[in-house]
Amino acid sequence: MKPSPFEYHAPRSIDAAVAVLAEVGHDGKVLAGGQSLIPILNMRLASPAHLVDINRVSGLDTVEVTAEHVRIGALVRHAQLEHHDGAYAAQPLLRQALLNVAHPVIRNRGTTVGSIAHADPSGEMPSVLVLTAGVVEATSVRGTREIPAAEFFLGPLESCLAEDEVATAVRFGRFSPGTGTAFQEIARRHGDYALAGMAAVVTVRDGVITEAGASFVSLTATPDILDLSAALAGATPEDADYAAAAALVRDHVDPDADIHASAEYRRMLAGAIAERLLPVAARRGIRQRSEQEATA
């Protein structure tokens, strides 16, 4: 389990990084935290001739919280974002989901942007990016562009990033006041990739649910948003028909079978998680609004 030979590049600026990528084209790969890429190289599932290690590029390791979003650079480790209180206050889903990404040692190295670039349908953060209507910022020698999350993921392990592009940052959106969030997944072992997982968001106004939605982990080929407002809007968090919402979830998801679980079982889990999670998000919505009002 040793990788094939490759040339190692350690650029110190983003310009230098994209210059190498432009030159080597198809033969190049960005190396961030290495928590997904290194095993792939060691098992020789991929043999890129050039590795462009972005860890020495300066300016990519910051978390910025603004009124609209939480923006993180490409070198922000999962752990850094997880422990960032400002980011948590602005978008609680980040910490709620990150606690389910692998184990602390892996979160210490793995980057959140890397996990989005990796586009694994079993990854937590792509789902969060989609549900928060986030944006990926990408740079290449051709310039810089912003890609809305809804367009970013093309398929399992496939994003619309070009070979010569580096994702320099992502922006997670924030929700309006009165919105509660919750994240849950079921895995075989603590910290494993989920058999099924879900991020939920419920907005409550004047004691009544106005909007609800969810995105999924290991349940859809690419992360997407399921609007659950039809099932829940108009009801109070106490009286809402969560079973109806769970039914919508079961209909929506399209899990694959693998050696750990059948597709049917995962579909059942999706419904079970929805039924448990949506009320939690709704209750948090009420609390969130009353906290907002208290501080206003």
């Binding site: 098992m43 603590h190 910290g191 750990h260």
Partner: peptide, 16 residues
């Protein structure tokens, strides 16, 4: 052998 790695061979962690 479909699970010939620690990704898919589920040796329990301390948490299990």
């Amino acid at each position: 052998l479909l699970n010939a790695s620690f990704m898919d061979f589920l040796m329990p962690y301390a948490s299990e």
